Computed example of a mutant assay.
Amino acid sequence: MSQPIKVEKTVTINKPAEELYRFWHNFGNLPRFMKHLKDVKVHNNKRESSGHATRTHWTTSGVLGGSVEWDADIIEDRENELITWASVEGADVDNSGSVRFQPAPGDRGTEVKVVTKYNPPGGAIGATIAKLFGEEPEQQIGDDLRRFKMLMEAGEIATTEGQPRGK
């Protein structure tokens, strides 16, 4: 059996925690900056106070043009501070994690910290194959956070895609 893969990444964004949390908490926004994420749907929106977690359905692009889907529950949701989640039992991708929003030192915006842990499909072999296709989790989450920063600070994500190359 393979060990779970754990990734932690932090980025400082020059925006208030409330604004960043609100954008992230609208889970349909996540594919705007998470490159491999196709869609996130909320199944029910019962708050924790009612004793029910919010269930979400995630669809990502997989290797060779396929897609991978799973359901996850929002375990903890502290407004403007923290969102934690865990995939439901039997999910194609067994994963859990959190995103934390906290004031940056010196009143320089907000530190956004993502921690994710998952067991790759197919165990260690699946993780090795994923790396061959450029799906390195640490790099991917770092890239996603940089795109989130650009989107929140500049209102768009700077890209060179589709631009002609200079000679």
Results as ranks from 00 to 15, higher is better:
Gln3Asn: 07
Gln3Cys: 00
Gln3Ile: 00
Ile5Glu: 00
Lys6Leu: 08
Val7Glu: 12
Thr10Ile: 06
Val11Asn: 00
Asn14His: 15
Lys15Met: 13
Lys15Val: 08
Pro16Lys: 14
Ala17Asp: 08
Ala17Asn: 12
Trp24Leu: 04
Asn26Ser: 15
Pro31Tyr: 14
Met34Cys: 08
Met34Phe: 06
His36Asn: 15
His36Arg: 07
His36Val: 07
Asp39Ser: 15
Asn44Pro: 09
Arg47Pro: 10
Glu48Asp: 14
His52Val: 14
Ala53Asp: 09
Arg55Phe: 03
Thr56Glu: 14
His57Met: 13
Trp58Pro: 08
Thr60Ala: 15
Gly62Pro: 11
Val63Arg: 05
Val68Arg: 05
Trp70Gln: 06
Trp70Pro: 09
Asp73His: 13
Asp77Ile: 04
Asp77Lys: 06
Asp77Thr: 03
Glu81Ile: 01
Ile83Trp: 01
Trp85Gln: 10
Ala86Glu: 02
Ser87Trp: 03
Val88Thr: 14
Glu89His: 03
Glu89Asn: 00
Gly90Asp: 11
Gly90Gln: 05
Val93Met: 12
Val93Glu: 02
Val93Cys: 08
Val93Tyr: 02
Asn95Met: 07
Asn95Thr: 03
Ser96Asp: 05
Ser96Phe: 02
Arg100Lys: 14
Arg100His: 07
Pro103Ala: 09
Gly106Pro: 02
Gly106Gln: 06
Gly106Asp: 13
Asp107Pro: 06
Asp107Asn: 15
Arg108Glu: 10
Arg108Ser: 12
Thr110Met: 01
Glu111Val: 06
Val112Tyr: 04
Val112Gly: 05
Lys113Asn: 13
Val114His: 01
Tyr118Met: 04
Asn119Trp: 00
Pro120Trp: 01
Gly122Phe: 08
Ala124Thr: 05
Gly126Arg: 00
Ala127Cys: 03
Thr128Pro: 04
Leu132Ile: 12
Leu132Tyr: 12
Pro137Ser: 09
Gly142Phe: 10
Arg147Ile: 01
Arg147Pro: 01
Arg147Asp: 13
Phe148Thr: 13
Phe148His: 14
Glu153Phe: 13
Gly155Gln: 11
Glu156Ser: 06
Ile157Leu: 09
Ala158Phe: 07
Thr159Asn: 07
Gly162Met: 03
Gln163Cys: 10
Gly166Lys: 12
Lys167Trp: 05
Lys167Gln: 09
